[in-house]
Simulated assay, not measured.
Amino acid sequence: MKLIIDNMSCNHCVKVITKAINDIDSQAKVTVDLAKKEVAIDGGTLSQEVAINAIDAAGYQFVGIGS
């Protein structure tokens, strides 16, 4: 799944979002593209809703589904 996340701008953002997802599903592979403001989550068993909630709880705003 690919999610568009607002207000990501640096490597700290990448670490926080990756940790938020991996704390819930350690098998998920998280790839963050700061230029596209896109978070790709592969593998694991995480639902889209749970991933969005984890990212929101980490202080970042979900704005849409990536392509």
Rank of each mutant, 00 (worst) to 15 (best):
N22M: 01
G43H: 00
S26H: 02
K29A: 08
A51I: 13
G59F: 07
D33T: 13
I52N: 05
E38H: 06
A20G: 10
D33W: 12
A35Y: 12
D56I: 07
I41D: 05
A40Q: 10
Y60S: 08
V30E: 01
A28R: 04
L34C: 08
K37R: 12
S26N: 10
G44I: 00
F62P: 13
K37W: 04
I52K: 10
V39T: 10
N22R: 13
S47T: 15
I41N: 07
Q61A: 15
V32Y: 01
E38Q: 14
S26D: 01
K36F: 02
V32C: 09
A51N: 08
D23Q: 11
D33G: 06
A35D: 05
A51F: 11
A54E: 07
Y60P: 09
A20F: 06
D56T: 15
T45L: 13
N53H: 11
L46R: 01
I41K: 12
F62H: 11
Q27P: 09
E38A: 13
Y60L: 03
T45Q: 07
V50G: 05
D25N: 09
N53P: 12
G43Y: 03
G59C: 06
A57S: 14
E49F: 03
V39C: 04
F62K: 01
K36Q: 04
Y60T: 01
V50F: 00
E38N: 05
I24H: 08
A57N: 12
A54G: 06
I52S: 10
I41T: 12
V30F: 07
A58S: 04
Y60I: 04
V39L: 10
E38T: 14
I55R: 11
D25H: 02
D42E: 11
V32P: 10
S26A: 15
E49Y: 02
V39I: 07
G59T: 01
Q27G: 05
A40G: 08
D33S: 05
I24V: 15
I24N: 07
Y60V: 07
D33Y: 14
L46H: 03
I52V: 14
D33K: 09
T45P: 14
V50N: 14
A51T: 09
K36P: 15
F62M: 09
N53A: 09
N53Q: 15
I21N: 05
D25Q: 01
Q48A: 09
A28D: 06
K36Y: 01
Q61Y: 03
F62R: 08
K36N: 11
K29Y: 02
G59L: 04
A35E: 09
N53E: 14
D25T: 11
A40L: 03
G43S: 00
N22Q: 08
G44M: 00
D56N: 15
D25K: 08
V39N: 03
T31Q: 10
